[in-house]
Each structure stands twice: as structure tokens, then as C-alpha cells.
Amino acid sequence: MTEQTFSTVHLSQKAKELSKLDGLGVQLWRKRRHLLDTDDLSSDELTTALHAAMLCKEMMKSDGPQALLAEKTVANLFYENSTRTRSSFELAAKRLGATVINVDIASSSVAKGETIIDTGRTLTAMGVDALVQRHNCSGAALQIVREFGEDVQVINAGDGWHAHPSQALLDYFTMWEICKELNGAKIAIVGDITHSRVARSNIALLSRLGADIHLAGPPTLLPDDLSKLGVTVHTQIEAAIENARFIMVLRLQLERQQQGLIPSIGEYKRLYRMDHARLKLAADNCKVFHPGPMNRDLEISNSLADDAKHSLVRVQVQNGVAMRMAILYLLLSSR
């Protein structure tokens, strides 16, 4: 109790505001313990996440690290390389005063016989409060929750092709800053849908908000029964982006060509690259998203990527830290 009072005294105005957030959404976030995907987030939780992210973004501008999670330890456990998501979570945790450890394990170097359960068990035994896990297998985060969910809080930082909830939430936050009501808004997601956890988590989140989601990609990169997810599926990018309010461009992994899923990079560029010419088809105030890292001039033209009038790539990165602060705070702060 005294500790709480002591730390509150040293908090900035915005941090105090964050610590005083209350209501059903805050309670639901604390109750959920884990963040695995966007499909089970209630509207109260979404509203709370936006509010918290807004405060965190202001804290980022004016304040140094705040002792909101000073007693917490967060482990970043990345089995797959990811400079930006890992750095984003690391910064977010540090800005909230948490202790952060980074455990980098390239999948290839995990010794045969060692499983993610072993590693999870080790970190849980060390008394880590939260595991931020990225793994190349779909379902890996759920697996950790099933084994250790009672002992450690799990934040899915990307599992295989399945889910990337913090990315979807930061994308939502970025859209919300521009357009408060997404019900009926046309949003296009373009590229390799099959292998994209970003697409899946965004579809799950944005479709619940009533957005009119249009997907476009070559048929070989559109998974089976996609239209049953409540989205409109196109093979021509033009149909998807026509009059779109937002366009999300997905990264194309270069190995898709070697796997025979597309005939050539050249053909892909010709058919799906987002550029200023194609942008003319979209709504006048259309904004373009990319989860990064970009293949410049492959899925997005160099000039569009850097065109701050339309491209929100840099804002996404800033908002990424803010939203991850919000997620960590809402899940880990105890009261």
C-alpha cells in the first residue's frame, strides 16, 4: 500500500491518468491474463485499449520511463527473427518501468529434443511474470498457455500464420486516430493472405467492427474457404482497393516464388504492387499500411512507401510502441 502511494507520487500526469483508468474494459483485460488473438476481445476491451494507447502515446512524447510495472519482469522470447516487434515490446515494457530480458532463439538452433515447453518451463521457473512469445508454428502461444497459463501471462507476438494480435491492435489504433467509426469503412488487405498472421488477426478484429473487408492476392496465396470469414475476396487488386479508405499491403516472402506459388517476382509486381497509380482508384483520403519490414518496390513502390501524405508506415511503428505499452499495462498491472 505504501509502495503504491510512493510510486504514484513520482508518476507523470499522463501515467497517473493511465493508472486511474477503470471500468468494465479494464477489469476484463485484467481478468483475461493472456493475449493470444484478437477474435475474443470484447468491445469494452477494445475501447479501453484505444484509450490506454492514446495515453501511452502522450507519455512517449513527454515523459521518461514511468514506474507503472516496476515490480514486473517481462521475457521476450523470440524463436523467429524480428527486430522491430521485439524492439517495440522491449521499449514498451521499459517505458513502463518493467524489467525486460530478451531470449533470442533462432528456430534452427533449438537443439533437437528441446521443445517450446522446456524453454517456457525454464523461464516460468525463473519467476518471469509475462512471456512475449514469437514462434514460427501456429498455435504455439496457446500451447504455452495450456501448460503454464496459471503461472505466467502470455502475450502472443506472432504464431506461425495464425495470429499477431498486437499488430492488429496497433493497426486499429492507427485507423481510429484518423477515422473513429470503422463500421462500413472499406478496408483492403493485399498480398500473401495464406501465410499472413497479420491478415488473419486484422480480419478477425476489423470484421467485428463492421468494416467492409476486401482481400486481394494471387489465387495461390488465398487460403481455402476464405470468403466464409465474412470478407470479399478478389484476385485483382483494383477491385479490392477501389474506393478503399484504408489499404494494408502485406510483405511478400521471396521464397514464395521458389515454392512455385507465384511464377515470378516480376509478374507479382505487375499485378499487385501498390503504387501512386493504383492509389488513384482508392478513396481520396486513403491511407496505406504496411506491417514491415517492406520489400521496397516489390509489394509497395518506393515513392508511396515514403509519401507521408498517404503512407502510415512510420505512424504504425510509433503507435506500435504505444499499443504494446497499453497491452502490457492492461494485462500486467495489478490492483
Binding site: 501456429s138 498455435g139 498472421r197 487460403p223 474457404d225 476464405l226 470469414l229
Partner: peptide
């Protein structure tokens, strides 16, 4: 391969 593999993000 079908709707469930699409949802789960698993190769079908």
C-alpha cells in the same frame, strides 16, 4: 484443408 485450416493458419 478448409475453413478451419484457414482460421488456424495451418497448412492444409
Amino acid at each position: 484443408e478448409g475453413l478451419m485450416s484457414t482460421k488456424l493458419g495451418l497448412p492444409g
